[in-house]
Simulated scan of single mutants.
Amino acid sequence: MTNSRGAVVITGASSGLGAAIAEGLAGAGFTVYAGVRTEESAARALRVNPAIRPLMLDVTSADAIRAAGRRVREEVGDAGLHGLVNNAGTCVPAPLECVPPEQLRAELEVNLIGTVAVTQEFLPLLRARPSAAVPGEPVGRIVTVSSGLGRVAAPFLGAYAASQFAKEGVSDALRRELASLAVSVSVIEPGAVPTPIWSKVEETARQILAAAPEAVAAPYRARFEAFVALNDERARQSRTRPEAVARAVAHALTARRPRTRYRVGPDARAAAVAARLLPDRVLDALIKRQFADPAPEKGRAGAYEGAAR
């Protein structure tokens, strides 16, 4: 390997959080296999840092996952893999009554099934690394990027929240299954972060509502439009930068005792506290108040909402 700290695979590294994580880890001395889906994204990754090695990887394709695994195995050899960062994700925003089943399946296929499938492919390489230099330190590490919505489900993001709740559960099970094998599992829970995902979310949201029968969409329309506008505003105003998420990932990959969860941003931390302390009815009332007015006041953002990537 060209970099001294070992090799790391990252999914969904074309842009946004994934690109920031890849750049941060390459700068920190890792050889980074950056999962991308297009040649254009691969060329862009190479321009950022020569330690970033573009890896064609579509997490919904079994063939692509196997091919990526073969390439990484051939290149890392006996050194194995230091870490896997499951970052690939998508967001389907809409009232659940309006979400077509095929889009719900697509959401789960990327965010949940893809995460598990990629983890299964690379786990042998994570276990194959030589023993840690410091006794008790993990030999291999898995870091999964989830969301504040893995703790509290927001209205109109039910499909996304379902995938993030499931991702949290899978991560808990993996952490307990792999504890005796010296492979750590950490979850990153970002709050709102200004990345290109937000323009995609708004576009998808409007397409889904427009395609729904009017009798189904009408009862939700005003609140849903207010929700879309509020989320866009929160993302633009957020002071949590992609680099903060990248630093949390780096800590999980380098600390002697990585945390099980990293909450990045004040809204993500507030969501965790609310989920732990507030009764469901109280939390429901706070959330309902956010959307009582179809044109919410500027800046009136709730702490329960996490970020899509």
Rank of each mutant, 00 (worst) to 15 (best):
Q207H: 10
Q207N: 14
A210L: 12
A211V: 09
A211E: 10
A212W: 06
P213T: 13
P213K: 15
V216E: 13
A217R: 14
F224H: 14
F224Y: 13
E225H: 14
E225M: 13
E225W: 12
A226D: 10
A226C: 06
N231R: 13
N231T: 03
N231P: 02
D232M: 10
A235I: 00
R236W: 05
R236P: 02
R236F: 02
Q237G: 15
Q237Y: 05
R239L: 02
R239G: 11
T240F: 02
T240R: 04
E243W: 02
A244S: 14
R247W: 00
V249S: 05
A250T: 00
H251G: 10
H251C: 11
H251L: 13
H251P: 08
A252S: 12
A252E: 04
L253F: 10
T254R: 10
A255T: 03
A255Q: 01
R257D: 01
R259W: 00
T260H: 11
T260W: 11
Y262P: 01
R263C: 08
V264A: 12
V264L: 07
V264K: 02
G265D: 09
R269C: 04
V273P: 01
V273E: 04
V273N: 03
A274C: 12
A275E: 07
A275D: 06
L277Y: 07
L278D: 05
L278G: 05
L278W: 00
D280W: 01
V282H: 02
V282F: 03
L286E: 07
L286K: 09
I287P: 08
K288G: 11
K288I: 01
K288Q: 09
Q290A: 09
F291N: 14
D293H: 13
D293Y: 08
